[in-house]
Amino acid sequence: MTTTPERARVQPPPSAVDTVTLTSETARKGDRLPRWVLKTISPIVLIALWQLLSSVGVLEDDTLASPWTVVQTAAGMWADGSLQSAVITSVIRVLAGLGVGLVAAVVLATLAGLFRRGEDIIDAPMQMLRTVPVIGLIPLLIIWFGINEEPKIILVGLAVTFPLYMNLYGGIRNVDASLIEAARTLGLGWFGQVRHVILPSAMPQFLIGLRYALGTAWLALVFGETINATSGIGYEMNKAREFFATDIIVVCLALYAILGLVADMIVRGLERGLLSWRPAFSGK
C-alpha cells in the first residue's frame, strides 16, 4: 500500500490486483478414475513387489513365503478343512468375549453415567483397572481358569470392556444439557430423557468405542491363542512357527486382517444405520 502524506488518492495501475481463477473442483484430473480403482492400486502394487522380491530370490521362503505360495497354502488348508475350523473357533471366541464385555461395559457405563452414586462407586476403580495391560493378566487367567475356552473369552471380554466403558460413559456425560432441558419442557420424564435424549446422544461415541474394542478384541485373541491353545488361528500360527512354515503364518495373519476388516465393516454399517441423522465430513 502506498499512501502519500497529502492523502491524495493513488490510482493503482491496471495490473496491480493479484487474482486467482477459481475452477470447479469436480473437474480435477485424478477424479477421472473411479475411487475404488484408486483405492486398490496401492495394495496391488505392494503385493506385486513382494512377489517380485520372492521370485528373484531376495526373499527366501524361510523368511517370508511368496504371495503365490501363500495362496496355494490357503487353498490347501481350505481343502483339508483346517482353515475353516480355525476361523470358526477364533470367531466364536471373539464373539463370546465381545458379548461378555459388551454386557459388562453397557451395564457399568450406564450406571456410572446416569447416576452420581454409580459414578462414585464404579468410575474410580474402572479408571484404575484401565491402566493395567490386559495381556499382563494372562498368567492369572491361566491360574484361575486353566487352559480351556474361559481364559481366552475372559481375556477378550476384558480387552473390550474398557474401551466400550470409557466411550459410553463419556458419551453419556457429554450430552447437551440444553437438549435435556428442552426434553423436560416437553414433559419427558427421567426414562423418556434417557431413551430419547441421553442414549441417542451417546451413540456416536459408543460406536467409536465399539470399533476400537473390536480392534483390541483381535489383539487379545492373538495373545490368548498363541500362549495356551489347542485350536484356533493363533494356535495354527504358533504350530507353524516350529516348522518355519512362513506360508501358514502369513495365511493366519491374512485371516486376522480379513476378520478385523469384516468386523470394521459391520460397525461402519451400524454407524450408517444408526447415525444417518449426522451429516459427516467425508474428506476432500
Binding site: A182, L186, G187, H196, S201, W277, R278
Partner: peptide, 24 residues
C-alpha cells in the same frame, strides 16, 4: 405450558415430525 428457546433445541437424531410430537 410450552417453551420456545433462543436455539431450536430439536433432537438431531429424530426426524422433524418425531421431534414435534416428542413427549406427547
Amino acid at each position: 405450558r410450552a417453551v420456545g428457546f433462543q436455539a431450536p433445541r430439536l433432537m438431531p437424531w429424530k426426524k422433524v415430525w418425531r421431534n414435534v410430537v416428542l413427549g406427547l
